[in-house]
């Protein structure tokens, strides 16, 4: 009887301990990492497309090689980050002098934040294959419904670069 009681207490303790274990923490998002730096291009023989402006009002700036972006082949400090994919680089002269801050996609460069994070799986995608007998509201002023993505506060605080053009509305945060 006493042995059974001990076993039950042990089982309960193990169960409680297992329940108390936190799940493995997901790697931090790119924009959440402090002191992030661009270490170099992912592929040396490919150019780097750069954007200029302030998100979401971005424009294409130019396409340069890593050598042009970082003449000394030195890591570049990331001064801003947008949607965990766009990185603002400190050097603003790669496309000329009048471009302002330049942005590059994290797809084309290796960052120190990426090296810190562990490997993880690709996100699942889904094709829209349903036909709907309804009309979609195309009104520009409408507020998009929250979807399966996160929106960073940078989208909300970014100023509109061109006041004559209606900037696309940022999706509302979850």
């Amino acid at each position: 009887m006493s042995r059974r009681l001990v076993l039950m207490v042990l089982a309960a303790a193990l169960h409680a301990a297992a329940a108390a274990d936190p799940p493995a923490a997901p790697p931090p998002k790119l924009c959440a990492v402090l002191n992030n730096r661009i270490l170099g291009p992912r592929s040396a023989d490919r150019p780097l497309p750069l954007l200029q402006g302030h998100p979401p009002a971005l424009r294409t700036a130019c396409v340069v090689s890593w050598r042009t972006l970082s003449p000394g082949n030195q890591p570049l400090a990331v001064t801003d980050c947008y949607q965990d994919s766009l990185l603002q680089v400190a050097d603003a002269a790669a496309c000329g002098t009048a471009t302002g801050p330049l942005w590059v996609s994290s797809r084309w460069v290796v960052t120190s934040a990426e090296l810190q994070a562990g490997a993880h799986s690709p996100a699942c995608q889904l094709l829209e294959t349903g036909a709907w007998a309804g009309t979609r509201d195309f009104e520009v002023a409408c507020k998009p419904q929250p979807r399966d993505f996160e929106v960073k506060p940078e989208a909300a605080k970014a100023p509109a670069a061109d006041s004559t053009k209606a900037a696309p509305a940022a999706p509302s945060p979850k």
């Binding site: 992912r42 592929s43 996609s105």
Partner: peptide
């Protein structure tokens, strides 16, 4: 989205191979 962000699909290769 996978092209624009390696966070969406990191398995396209460390060098995008």
């Amino acid at each position: 989205s996978a092209l624009l962000s390696p966070e969406v699909d990191p398995t396209l290769g460390a060098q995008n191979e």
